[in-house]
Design a protein around this nucleic acid. Structure first.
Lengths: 339, 339
DNA sequence: TTGTATGCGTTATCAT
DNA sequence: ATGATAACGCATACAA
């Protein structure tokens, strides 16, 4: 009697079936084997309830079918949705996902990278904040929204076009005097292009605009102050606001309520990301929607494509506008069609 | 010249440092080694940028420091928060997490279990819906909210106490005629105890109550119908509602708005779970809060405790009530204290 | 077509 | 204290 407790191995199956080790391996991997042998092996596998050890497989093949996802957390709706869709995209290709919540901690991010490499993952997808992340050459890496180097592909929504679209929508909906609100200073972020796109859109539509851009440390209250300063005789001089994220948009909407301004009657608000209640219900605000399933697919596709000499340094996917109750599109032109 | 591309191994380090393989292993694992050797090895590690291969380690030790989490998805706020806290709890113990989104698919759940076992994970934590999941004896398993067998520990919030607390709060806040709304039929769920607890609370407080319990397939609209049936002359005969989850509570609140009922003036609503906007901001409604960090810690603790002969079959952690704008606690007794 | 032997990267048990 | 060697579970090139 041998080890009873630990899981059965190929050797056990071979002994049980009365065949050689290699034969079992072939059956397991679907390689041609004589029918009678095959049946005997399959029976033995059944009987012993054998499962291959993918660690040992990985050791042989130096391929682990595992990808690490570095993301700040899984509680903010955008992150959790991205996590979900990347998981789906990986599963489709029979890859497993190692989840690494970094909590915006730069050191933690580096630790996770090291861990992932020790685990010999087949690749890493990262939405990270450490611009100096050290990643081994031979570990495929794809980032979301961050440019980290020429040979590290970055996948993002078309942030510039999104900003522009926001301006155009506000113009369409009758705004004359708009503002862009943003927090976060990192200059290398792709999302920073939202500002440039918005400016561009405002200019082409002849919209007067203002910017309020906060650094990472500053409190959201600064935005409320900014808004309060634009109120004269109870009336806000701004009639349209584009916020860099839906999260900020929702804060701004609350601020506006406190300031006795009605949304969307007095001022319209558009966010960015396209987050929804419970992940699949209504949009939390009118917004520029990132195409999450497609973005996730692209990250995974780019990451796992091995025979690609030069990977594209930046891939931007198209965004769309979605109504979420904080714009008054239906009171303008749309209404007139009903007549 | 040998393989240039693949990652350096201990052997490479040993050659570089001019020492034996075993010596390198000792240095890596912090075992006693002569100082001069130690330094040479460390230099070689630096130079080659060596990283241990934890797959090979796992193969030797049959311990992988990896745990799989089975959860329907990461987009519903409760699931995503649970995922986050379990990730934290695992990280604290130097464990990695394999994320498995099952999408409520029973077959998918089983596939993931098989995959996890092939990956020789050290354990599985599951919030699953397949009552017949087959899990190998030797893979530690802990469930959340599901009783699956005597030797499989289940961690849950104190659902009975939570239901009771909801009834008591509604009574405290002046309700006379309340209702409990639930969807989901699986009889073995721990959350089903919320109903019993609520009934118990209503009885002890002399509250008149009604139940509306839907099966899994039925549409939420049935709840709106139920509410509509209780409106006579524009007035709802129910003045307090306990919903089995915050998700349902939010749906019910919207329904009530459509039915021209004011929350909390005409009818108060309490949910269950304690979900917040963006995971860390205000509660979405008044609610019974599950202690997520503690629940996550307990899951992990129970899972990784190896030298525990008999693991507890069911662990319930205490819940709390939190105000979220859909109850009128401040208009009753609380106000009077201010005088 | 089936069996045998070697090596993947690591750790642990030996002698030295 | 250090170095050689076997073993972990599997895949594969090679021999039978």
């Amino acid at each position: 009697m041998k080890k009873e407790s630990s899981a059965p191995t190929m050797k056990d199956v071979a002994r049980e079936a009365g065949v050689a080790l290699g034969t079992v391996s072939k059956v397991v991997n679907g390689l041609p084997v004589g029918d009678s042998y095959k049946i005997r092996v399959e029976n033995a596998i059944q009987k012993l309830n054998y499962q291959v050890n993918s660690y040992a497989q990985g050791l042989k093949a130096s391929k682990t079918y595992t990808v690490a996802l570095l993301i700040p957390n899984t509680v903010e709706p955008f992150f959790s949705a991205l996590t979900y869709h990347i998981n789906i995209a990986l599963l489709k290709r029979k890859y497993r996902m190692l989840l690494c919540s970094t909590d915006f901690d730069l050191a933690q991010e580096q630790e996770y990278v090291t861990m992932a490499q020790q685990n010999k993952v087949d690749g890493i997808i990262g939405l990270t904040y450490n611009p100096n992340l050290i990643i081994e050459e031979n570990t495929p890496f794809v980032t979301f929204d961050r440019r980290m180097g020429a040979n590290i592909p970055c996948v993002a929504s078309d942030n510039f076009a999104g900003g522009q679209l926001a301006a155009e929508k506000l113009a369409d909906f009758g705004c004359k005097n708009v503002a862009f609100l943003r927090i976060g200073s990192s200059l290398t972020n792709e999302p920073n292009k939202r500002k440039a796109g918005f400016e561009n859109g405002c200019l082409s539509r002849g919209l007067h605009y203002e910017m309020k851009i906060l650094d990472d440390g500053e409190p959201y209250e600064e935005f409320e102050k900014f808004l309060a300063e634009h109120i004269h005789d109870g009336k806000l001089s701004i009639d349209g606001i584009f916020c860099v994220t839906d999260k900020l948009a929702l804060y701004v909407i609350q601020s506006l309520r406190r300031l006795k301004q009605r949304v969307p009657e007095d001022v319209q608000v558009i966010g960015y990301d396209g987050i929804r209640y419970f992940g699949d219900q209504e949009y939390m605000c009118s917004t520029i929607v990132q195409p999450l399933p497609e973005l996730a697919e692209m990250c995974v596709e780019l990451l796992l494509q091995e025979n690609m000499k030069t990977k594209p340094p930046l891939v931007c996917l198209p965004v769309t506008y979605a109504y979420g109750g904080t714009t008054s599109e239906f009171t303008d032109k749309s209404e007139s069609f009903k007549e």
